[in-house]
Design a binder for these strands. Structure first.
Lengths: 208, 208
DNA sequence: TCGAATATGGTAGTCACTACCATATGACTG
DNA sequence: CAGTCATATGGTAGTGACTACCATATTCGA
């Protein structure tokens, strides 16, 4: 690897770290891009070459986790569909759990800044689309429309589980075991689509 | 109703219609807010009082469909959980199918404008949150965390089905029967979470 | 060491969006 | 009907994210 790419990675990390620092200290909305550039000792022009939008400074970490998981899944040998989805889900959750503080910070910013929330959702959507594409590539069937439908719905289910588990995790600081929760959700993936409580009395919905 | 609210609704509609016209003619990115305001013969200041962001000019219709469905569901008598979700899904799809051109236009803009896509996803996320909240209110159970989990996962499943069906619908101009597709998806909601094709040979995933 | 490829910094500008104020227009009271 | 109050509107000035562009500096291959 040349010196060029080394420096590039270094300044990239520097900018991202300084940005995260300023965001957590003063808030996303109260931090300008110029301030970040100044803190990283680069020009605003340079910053924009690395990060096309202000939001990517926050969400790049999550994006990496999701896209790495898809890339990993692409190289996996063929398996049963539920097994494959389970593997992807576990992979994403493991990567996210590597930096709990980072994940929590991202979700806090998303909660109080609509544009961050929007870009986060868009990120998740793109992950879902990539996963769908890979599932289509792997699934076989006579009806291509049915394959597309099946793949999209499956990818959505996986994304649903990931999102739900992560949200429960970040909302409950210390009372959540991600692995246990994910396991419970995944058993629903194999059983019924709707996670109905075990007791029959809990199956009913009560009015207002 | 006073003359005041009448005029307000009128100018609101006027702005939204002119905006949609300009967007479809020249594209979302190539239309400025000032142009829209000029076309509706109002000041930019007035426009921003009605629509806080440029994206809301596009997405208000979808937002109305989703939020109306939730509001409707809130007033429904208690029913079985799968039945309730099915009702919400049908409600949303019916409302969207009322203006097919509008829905198609929205998704086209979302496909070619990241900020529109982001705001659309954020809208869907908010719908999911509202639906989750209502499900929590209706569900009973000894463990509140399990209730929250169940509700979030259920709302996510409903949203997953809606999003998948709508996406298939807008991607295939005339070859999709929304009702039929929704029916198929909803049967999966009651059966297994993963939509596996009927033939056993289709259950396997094949490698690259 | 020289020239090509690329990374950087700065400038000028567009545009979405906000805060604020003066004015005009419906709405209600005597 | 006149007056007054609440609210709607239009305009101005500004912030800040983002783009296009160009001159300079740095790194790489020969």
């Amino acid at each position: 690897m040349g010196l060029r790419e080394l420096k590039r990675e270094r300044t990239r990390r520097l900018i991202a770290d300084k940005a995260f620092e300023l965001f957590t200290d003063h808030g996303f909305g109260r931090t300008t891009v110029e301030q970040i550039a100044a803190a990283a000792e680069v020009g605003p022009s340079t910053l924009y070459r690395y990060f096309p939008t202000k939001e990517t400074l926050v969400l790049e970490f999550v994006e990496d986790c999701l896209m790495d998981a898809v890339a990993w899944f692409r190289e996996q040998p063929p398996v049963d569909l539920p097994d494959g989805l389970q593997a992807v889900i576990e992979r994403v959750l493991e990567e996210l759990e590597r930096n709990p503080d980072r994940v929590r910070a991202v979700y806090e910013m998303a909660d109080q800044t609509p544009s961050v929330s929007a870009h986060l959702q868009e990120l998740i959507w793109r992950f879902r689309e990539e996963l769908t594409e890979e599932l289509v590539r792997r699934l076989s069937g006579p009806d291509p429309q049915l394959v597309e439908f099946t793949a999209a719905l499956s990818a959505g289910s996986a994304m649903n589980i990931i999102e739900t588990v992560v949200r429960m995790w970040v909302d409950n600081p210390d009372g959540i075991d991600v692995k246990e929760l994910a396991h419970r959700a995944m058993s629903l993936l194999r059983g019924g689509g709707i996670p109905l409580p075990a007791a029959p009395s809990d199956n009913a919905i009560h009015g207002p």
